[in-house]
Design a protein around this nucleic acid. Sequence first.
DNA 1: ATGGCCTCGGTTCGAGGA
Length: 258
Amino acid sequence: MSHPLTIATWNVNGIRARLDRVLDWLSRTQVDVLCLQETKTPDDKFPTEDFEAIDYSVAAHGQKSYNGVAIIARHDLEEVTVRIDDEDDDQARLIAATVLGVRVFSAYFPNGQSVGSDKYAYKLRWMARLRDRLEREVASGREVALLGDFNVAPEPRDTHDPDQWEGGILCSDQEREALARLRELGLHDALRAVRPDDVVYTWWDYRLLGFPKNRGLRIDHAYLTSSLVERLVSVEVDREARKGQQPSDHAPLVVALR
DNA sequence: ATGGCCTCGGTTCGAGGA
């Protein structure tokens, strides 16, 4: 028998700038596991006590100003590991923990800036490294849940305006192929598993009234191994969390498992 | 109104984001 479990991912664009909003959201939703990205905070300044005060545990891996990931959970966080591999890389973009037997990864994929740039090459290299890491994790027979800001829109329908986005950063063939290589490991796009035809976005530009006009992208994802897909009840974007004063430019993606 | 942002660190701007 498995335990019902909700797992969410949210790029918060600065945990200290968004702390009250995230605490309120957790208290209201009672999500079991929350994967955070762009915490932009060193671990000694992460507001761990504030989460513990509402009975959540924290595993954080951050750095000053940029990047940073964390996993917040109402259950014990076991086997916490940070980084992808042993390669030299000072960017804090991956943390893993085991929650109720599920190996959960919170990932902040590189943005890539523009196709052909040095940052683009780093992004593709990072995705290949992640693939190799997850190949080992999946081969071990674990239930794996990879959640985060993947910074890739998998298909043209995952952007509000393909004419504007296709072929550019977040939507290039090489990025999409690197994402397909992750799925080839046996990881499935949870949103598409239960909502194959919906137009869904998770990010909207702060500028140009992006959110009111629903000019968005689907770049935050939850990739699950098959046994977790079989437990899927729903996958939802909480658009309410993108509204109001000082929102993140991303909304949370919430995965419910039976 | 026909253009419209936000974080961080560190100062009143620059880098980065997507």
